[in-house]
Design a protein around this nucleic acid. Structure first.
Lengths: 240, 240
DNA sequence: TAATTAATTTGGTATATACCATTAATGTAG
DNA sequence: CTACATTAATGGTATATACCAAATTAATTA
């Protein structure tokens, strides 16, 4: 189970192993994990190394410890993606609905002033513009416009953007994704939103803008999403 | 500086000491911290104990480590309060505006069904209801309604609620505050919102609901805030 | 002088050990 | 059987030590 010769740290191997068992259902929410000393003996590693693995998973809220009792699988694991923010896809699945996307357009366009500012690039620099409608049970829920620096993120296809943008950036381009800032705003639907969301005039929409950065702080992505206010709410989970 | 006999763990004492130096400006953003070995020798404690303190501060983003170089004070420390979410007061100050509150009412009322559900109490149980308008430069920005379990949080006054609710709960009642869930929604202003926010009919408002829990998961507070959409946006900072 | 190499310093990983505090299980006296 | 004390198990804190990997600095060589 644990390869001491591997260049991957032991504590990290153990982390992945525990996470995998949680995902597979071998460890169920509420269950007690084997004790630290038990793990150490079983895997023939130091208890402190076990603690390091468990501490990380506690910080990520997969587990929680109770002194004198043990370590337990956390009941509900929220955030899979960006901290605490439920993604549209996950959220819809959680509500028992089937999420889907409809691509409207995928092209390279020159960045307008405001966008160029957000992405910290020169005006008219090339950016990928991806427009799509997000649906649940084939009902339009949101209009999403994604803008990505073309000079920074090269070789994008509509397919990558729709399925695995972040993996592509980290695994294929070798870049590291950092933090993001997100902004919520309420507005009245404009013409484009009326059209794609199929809602009546003067409907309120929940506008969400996100600027995502690389590890070094370089912004590479701006996402502007307009959600139907009558059908969607953002749920957020916050820590102290 | 460090009291080994104290019941407060050494690593925690060191954490507080470092945080205090950052706040006082003795350590400035971008500065390198003394090395782990240096700290250990200086304070006559183990390097591993120093690491534990620093690791916690790294997790809280006060510090960041660079292998081979050192540990540095993080440039910008975001979230002071709940993770990444800018509070109204802080946000307004950051924009150079003067925030203020106007108390509309402070009373104990029986919980309605929906509220009772959120607070996990029986219907008609007593709850504090605090209504106030939040202003910036004396212009109404939001209508805020706070509901707090009266059986759980005793002895509240309007003054406490307005100034230091969380400190009161933790320091005076000895309870520990845990996580919170937050929800964003766009609606059209209702009559109450029209009145207090002084906006025209059919104006969109950004509705924010927050449920705050104690450390053990017991919900104790529900906050429902209606923000003028034309004057306020929620800014959020997300981690990976 | 410039380029290379070696040594030093830094954080990263891992082990072994010790004792404390809380909780749960066990044993014991009434 | 109950109430209390004891014991065992668990996570929490702390130390000492060792070696690795990346970055910097110093020394050496061409």
């Amino acid at each position: 189970m644990i390869d001491k010769q591997s260049p991957i740290p032991i504590y990290h191997q153990l982390e992945e192993q525990i996470k995998s068992k949680i995902e597979k259902g071998e460890y169920k929410p509420g269950d007690a994990l084997p004790s630290e000393r038990e793990y150490a003996e079983q895997l023939n590693i130091s208890r402190m190394t076990v603690r390091q693995a468990i501490t990380n998973l506690v910080n990520e809220r997969y587990l929680h410890r109770i002194k004198g009792k043990g370590t337990f699988i956390t009941e509900k694991k929220f955030e899979q993606n960006l901290n605490g923010l439920t993604s549209f896809t996950e959220d819809m699945k959680a509500r028992g609905m089937t999420p889907s996307n409809k691509l409207i357009s995928f092209e390279i366009v020159p960045a307008k002033k405001n966008l160029a500012n957000h992405l910290n690039i020169a005006e008219h620099s090339p950016v990928y513009e991806v427009k799509r409608v997000r649906l649940a049970e084939d009902i339009p829920m949101a209009l999403e416009r994604t803008y990505i620096s073309a000079n920074l993120i090269k070789g994008l296809t509509d397919n990558i953007v729709q399925s695995s943008l972040y993996q592509y950036i980290e695994n294929d381009l070798g870049l590291k994704i950092g933090r993001a800032s997100q902004l919520f705003e309420a507005t009245i639907a404009n013409d484009e939103e009326l059209e794609y969301l199929n809602i009546p005039e003067n409907s309120p929409v929940l506008l969400m803008k996100r600027i995502t950065q690389l590890d070094d702080g370089t912004p590479f992505e701006v996402v502007k999403s307009s959600y139907r206010a009558d059908r969607y709410q953002f749920m957020l989970d916050l820590e102290r």
